[in-house]
Design a protein around this nucleic acid. Structure first.
Length: 456
RNA sequence: GAGGUUGUAGCUCAGUUGGUUAGAGCGUCGGAUUGUGGUUCCGAAGGUCGCGGGUUCGAGACCCGUCUUCCUCCCCA
């Protein structure tokens, strides 16, 4: 090896089996979406920078991969901006394209741009990679797949319910040992801020609350306090940590807590609606919880917020989503409400891998490998292979007449289920020998009818 | 973006206070077996010790920089 080889930071190669495993996940997800009438779309890997920048907050902008202008365009670089320390402006002059950061914002652009060609409510799913210039960690990559499903142009809460059912269907079919869905509503968070009299610090409040299950109550209070929240406010927040009981119990406790906040009560009503539709559809190894501290980073959510975690393994959320009333407004189209979810395929992949939940058959090779021992019998093997492929079988012919040991080793390594011998001995005896690679059993068939006899 | 951590054969890892020619297992290849794999036995190939610089008579080991790995924070799928 003359050169140290590596994929770029935060990316990974996929071996054949890895791709099979990934496609298995994609297939289950797309089948579920299709069953609910969602249509597939795709958008380009990169967008105009102006489409993406500023849509994910300050932090988000930093994590967007930018594409350097090429050729003559590089001459447009704004050197004076660099000299004046205006790095953002300078960067913008160097780059007018960027890799997509998620599938939601490009989708919003797509909806606005194609609004006359779409029938609303428009239900789409999209499975494509996204890129983030994040620091890689366990379960975090710079290139990873998202599997998004969204409904735009309908503000019915039934869409929320439908998306929850899709999540259940997907995670059940993947045979996860269990999962928990956490529900909240942005309006409830607004209500909490209202009750506490800190409407203008909603973001700071929710970001801190969101960390509750990670850093604990004391640390959250400490963070809020350090961000300037007064002891009186902290006192008012306190009851939120004491919520307990069933989903309905919590709703009742919150109803009292938010009684002075119309928007908060509205949010509770929405949560309640979704819960009522789903409460009898929760399996034993699943939970549906009301989690008032769930905030999620994306600022565009306005209604329901949800997050899903797999049980029995330490891993970030594997699915998230929510409703956003004014996402397309950013691109000039008002009054179009949307709600969507996003599966993190790479995290699901890692979970299925470590829990050994991928089906065995994914590692199986072709059903049949034809072995020959001379060029003269190879053409006959080719003809049989074509015949079997027409019958829907996956069949390979070993390309050269190498020694048998070598061909069988190849068959073994590839996970081939059957091999067929057609060499001098068989030609002379007018037969074909079939060997089952799992059991080692061998069967001899007449050369004229072996295909039908073997399949029969 | 801040802090820490890791890097030695294709893979997983040894390598003593700095000291001769850097090792093992697995894998690969060849043979035992010219027509029977997944087991066994024998043999072989495979290394700019991440990269660049420095200290030293001498560096895989120590120092600096850089890239990479994994982790914490930030944020998120």
């Amino acid at each position: 090896m003359s050169q140290k080889l590596n994929t770029p930071k935060g990316t990974r190669d996929y071996l054949p089996l890895d791709v099979r495993k990934r496609n298995y996940i994609f297939q289950i997800i797309s089948e579920a979406f299709e069953q609910f009438g969602y249509q597939p779309i795709e958008t380009p890997s990169f967008e105009l920078s102006s489409t993406l920048m500023g849509k994910y907050g300050e932090e988000g902008d930093r994590l967007i991969f930018r594409i350097l202008n090429s050729g003559e365009k590089l001459k447009k670089a704004d050197i004076s901006a660099l000299e004046n320390d205006q790095l953002a402006k300078f960067a913008h002059s160097l780059s007018e394209k960027a890799l997509r950061y998620d599938l939601t914002v490009p989708f919003a652009r797509y909806v606005v741009q194609h609004q006359n060609d779409l029938t609303f409510p428009f239900k789409r799913y999209q499975i494509q990679p996204v890129w983030r210039a994040d620091r890689p960690q366990h379960g975090r990559y710079q290139e990873f797949y998202q599997c998004d499903g969204d409904v735009v142009g309908s503000d019915s809460l039934r869409n929320e319910v439908e998306l929850m059912r899709i999540i259940q269907r997907v995670l059940r079919r993947l045979n996860l040992p269990g999962f928990s869905i956490k529900l909240n509503n942005r309006k409830v968070l607004s209500g909490i801020a209202q009750v506490c009299g800190v409407e203008h610090e909603l973001i700071a409040l929710t970001v801190a609350l969101d960390k509750l299950d990670k850093i604990g109550k004391e640390a959250v209070i400490e963070e809020l306090s350090s961000k300037g929240f007064t002891p009186q406010v902290l006192e008012k927040i306190n009851p939120l940590f004491a919520l307990e009981g069933t989903f309905e119990d919590r709703i009742n406790q919150l109803r009292d807590y938010l009684s002075e906040s119309p928007i908060g009560l509205k949010g509770l009503e929405e949560i309640s609606f979704v819960f009522e539709k789903l409460k009898n559809e929760i399996a034993e190894n699943e939970t549906l919880e009301l989690e008032v501290t769930l905030a999620r980073g994306l600022n565009y959510y306005t209604g329901m917020i949800l997050e899903v975690k797999a049980s029995g393994i330490e891993m970030g959320s594997i699915c998230g989503g929510g409703r956003y009333d004014d996402l397309t407004e950013l691109f000039g189209l008002k009054g179009l409400s949307g709600v969507g979810i996003s599966f993190g395929a790479d995290r699901i992949y890692d979970i299925l891998n470590s829990l050994k939940l991928f089906p065995e058959h994914l590692s199986e090779g072709p059903e049949l490998l034809l072995l020959h021992f001379s060029e003269s019998s190879a053409d006959q093997c080719d003809a049989w292979a074509q015949q079997l492929r027409d019958l829907g079988k996956s069949v390979e012919v070993y390309p050269s007449a190498l020694k048998l040991q070598k061909q069988l080793k190849y068959a073994n390594d590839r996970g081939v289920q059957w091999v067929a011998f057609y060499g001098d001995v068989e030609i002379e005896q007018q037969c074909v020998v079939l060997k089952n690679m799992h059991t080692g059993e061998q069967f001899t068939y007449d050369v004229k009818s072996w295909v039908a006899d073997w399949l029969g």
